[in-house]
Computed example of a mutant assay.
Amino acid sequence: MKGKEKMNKSILETSDAWLLLAIIYASSNEPADLSKIIGAGDYINHAIFTLRELKGGIARLSNHEYIKDHGELKFSATDKILMPYNDFSKKKRRVSAELEFVRKTIGANVYKLGTNQLNENME
């Protein structure tokens, strides 16, 4: 059973933490559409998500129950991440500190320079 459960839970990537923080920012008042999520992601990382990061990240974060799909490409963060994030963010912090907190909280892999991370994650 443990092997089957492991197959169902894919490994989270650093970009998943970035996407999750963007969803937290974009959906603070209501479920956020992709344009708001992409805008929040640009604010956080000064970059735009690739299609692979969006599609894969949404699937992985949903699978791990960190985000909720509201249909019509609208998403929000779940209490699974919002509870620890809200405790952490009570004190004003830099965006980079919030991103690192989310990465550690969800257990996302760290990018390793000079390696093919995708292949390492497939093992």
Rank of each mutant, 00 (worst) to 15 (best):
Tyr85Ile: 08
Thr14Asn: 09
Leu82Ala: 01
Glu120Phe: 10
Glu123Met: 02
Glu65Ser: 12
Gly39Arg: 03
Met7Ala: 14
Arg60Asp: 04
Ala40Gln: 11
Thr105Glu: 15
Lys112Ile: 15
Lys9Trp: 04
Leu51Ala: 11
Ser96Cys: 09
Ser27Lys: 00
Ile67Val: 14
Glu98Pro: 00
Trp18Asp: 04
Ile24Pro: 00
Gly57Ala: 12
Lys2Cys: 05
Leu82Thr: 15
Ser28Ala: 09
Ser76Arg: 04
Phe101Arg: 07
Phe88Met: 01
Ile106Thr: 05
Ala59Gln: 14
Pro84Lys: 08
Glu65Cys: 02
Glu53Asp: 13
Ile44Thr: 00
Ile48Trp: 02
Ser62His: 07
Leu12Gly: 06
Ser15Asn: 07
Lys90Pro: 00
Tyr25Gln: 10
Gly41Lys: 01
Tyr111Cys: 01
Lys92Met: 09
Lys104Glu: 14
Ala47Leu: 07
Thr115Asp: 06
Arg103Asp: 01
Pro31Met: 04
Ala26Gly: 07
Leu20His: 05
Gly57Thr: 03
Lys80Ala: 10
Asp87Gly: 05
His64Asp: 08
Gln117Phe: 02
Ile58Tyr: 03
Ile58Lys: 03
Phe49Met: 08
Tyr85Ala: 13
Tyr43Gly: 04
Ile24His: 05
Lys9Cys: 07
Gly107Gln: 07
His46Asp: 15
Glu123Phe: 04
Gly39Met: 11
Asp33Gln: 07
Leu21Ser: 01
Thr50Ser: 15
Glu53Phe: 06
Asn29Asp: 15
Ser96Ala: 15
Ile67His: 02
Phe49His: 05
Met1His: 11
Thr105Gln: 11
Tyr43Phe: 14
Leu54Gln: 10
Ile106Ala: 04
Ser62Asp: 08
Leu21Met: 13
Lys91Gln: 12
Asn86His: 05
Phe101Tyr: 14
Asn109His: 10
